[in-house]
């Protein structure tokens, strides 16, 4: 049995990197005393994976962990015991038990919805008014960091939706194992469109991880 659990990475700890978040979850699972499964081999570790790594500097409202259990437990018990064992900054809001054959989460992931808070109100106004013209373009280039170099990518097809309101920009961006538009890439393109040279301070919050149901609709990944 596996448990898919939705957890928060709070604003306070947004500078913690993914590896450290993984370790914090591993230790939380150990503290909880829940019957988790361990890998075989010389250095056994808890079998827990994540739907997607969240960038250092970004917080997440609904991140998803996938824990392989050694014995069945109810979702309610999982949540209750984990929330006592996890710091206040990483609480679990929902959990769902699935069987071992459930597809792996990264393979199901299609997109992520972000809320981007622009700290400077004047910049926010400029950026938001540049959205329509950017979206009218056939191609929107942005630099993507690969393992070895920076590579130019056309992000226009990867922006699934975008709208601005107040100091916030809400965007749904493609996120799969093969291709992704990171919030930073979107901001780079939008800043160019708005003619902003200065550094833009943004608080990126990932609000949901999305998959596609049988009818092709984007729904929260944990519900698939």
């Amino acid at each position: 049995m596996r448990m898919l659990a939705v957890f928060e990475k709070s604003e306070r700890i947004r500078h913690i990197g993914h590896l450290d978040i993984q370790r914090a979850v591993q230790r939380g699972l150990r503290r909880s005393g829940l019957p988790v499964a361990y890998s075989q081999g010389f250095n056994p570790h808890i079998l827990v994976t994540f739907a997607s790594a969240l960038s250092t500097g970004a917080c997440g409202k609904r991140e998803i962990m996938d824990v392989t259990m050694a014995e069945d437990v109810s979702a309610a018990e999982f949540i209750e015991r984990m929330n006592r064992a996890m710091p206040g900054e990483m609480q679990i809001s929902e959990a769902r038990a699935v069987d071992g054959k459930h597809p792996s989460l990264p393979g199901l992931l299609r997109a992520a919805r972000y809320d981007l808070l622009i700290r400077d109100p004047a910049q926010a106004e400029k950026l938001i008014s540049a959205i329509p013209s950017m979206m009218a373009r056939k191609t929107v280039p942005a630099m993507r960091k690969t393992k070895t170099a920076m590579k130019e990518t056309d992000i226009r097809p990867l922006i699934l939706s975008i709208r601005g309101e107040g100091h916030h920009i809400q965007a749904t961006l493609t996120l799969t194992e093969r291709e992704a538009c990171k919030p930073g890439m979107l901001m780079e393109a939008l800043a160019r469109e708005a003619g902003i040279q200065e550094e833009i301070r943004v608080l990126a919050r990932r609000e949901a991880l999305l998959g596609q149901d049988e009818d092709g609709r984007m729904i929260p990944l944990e519900q698939l």
Binding site: S10, R12, I13, H15, I16, D20, A24, R27, M86, P87
Partner: peptide
């Protein structure tokens, strides 16, 4: 930055 942010367990 995590040197300065706190929020650790316990």
């Amino acid at each position: 930055a995590p040197r300065y942010t706190g929020g650790e367990m316990n």
